[in-house]
Amino acid sequence: MIVFLSKRLLLAIPTLLVASFLIFSLVHIAPGDPIQVMLGDFQDPELIARLRHEMGLDLPLLQQYFHWLGNIVRGDLGISITVQRGASVTDLILQRFAVTVELAFFSLIIALLIAIPTGIISALRQNKLSDHLSRIIALLGVSIPNFFLGILLILFVGVYLRKPWGAGGYVPLSRGLLKNLAHMFLPAVALGTAYAAIIMRMMRSAMLDAMSQDFVRTARAMGIAPADIVRRDIVKNALIPVVTVIGNSIGYLLGGSIVTETVFRLPGMGNLVIMGVFRRDFPVIQAVVLIIVVVRIAVNLIVDLTYGFLDPRIRYGGER
């Protein structure tokens, strides 16, 4: 187990290096730079050159990259140029990290609460009315973009029903858990629905696959009650592939949160990165995207560990 963990952590290092290089190059390949944004209409070439020099933007790209990388290794994510001039990026991210994590986590819970039961029922009642209904709803769920669903939800709950928690915006936890959760509810639904649809379909097909396995027939031949067969033979085995899908699509949640946060005016990391992109704030964009990569790697590792827990055929560290 420890061997497995350290192996995986070591493997994460090259992944992160490649990711950081890609992020850095892409940001710098994109047209425009923070100085232009900062100066707006007042584009004095001499001033631009001086500011570029001050910020090290005139150095060769590779040198800038290693400089940035060196700072990151030391835990310094840099200084914001345009989003909040002079503020440390670490502070900016820390302020917003919790909002995004809360959104992603809340969406995940909503998605699982919808997806697992409907997937199970859908499979058990294959080709019956409830199966067709849930499959149609799932198709709708995947097809509607989450920003559009978000707008519809705001229109309906916020504008039409006039609920104060339905119009977007963020209430910090310090002003009460209930209020905080209420404001998070619609964004989480908007983000979680498509995710729920993906997991539901996966759960359904994994269930159908498990139901046709020989060991289910063995259990029936032994007179085991149907409820027990569903629980211990079918669902337990169906969850194995589903957990992988859940983990792999955590990236989807993080990506989706960028759009959702913008629609619902949530001060999260997605919101931060959007501001960073608009204002060409290189250190902010680089840091946020890098953190998303780190989170994904961490989640994948956690999923792999869960997988071993669910499926005894996979054991780490070579013990048999």
Partner: peptide, 25 residues
């Protein structure tokens, strides 16, 4: 009624033992 008979008075052994046993139990 069949569930009470299966596995008790009337039982069966299948051919492929790997696929016939639940891998997670």
């Amino acid at each position: 009624e069949m569930r009470r008979i299966r596995g008790k008075d009337l039982s069966m052994v299948f051919q492929d033992s790997l696929s016939s046993l639940n891998p997670t139990l």
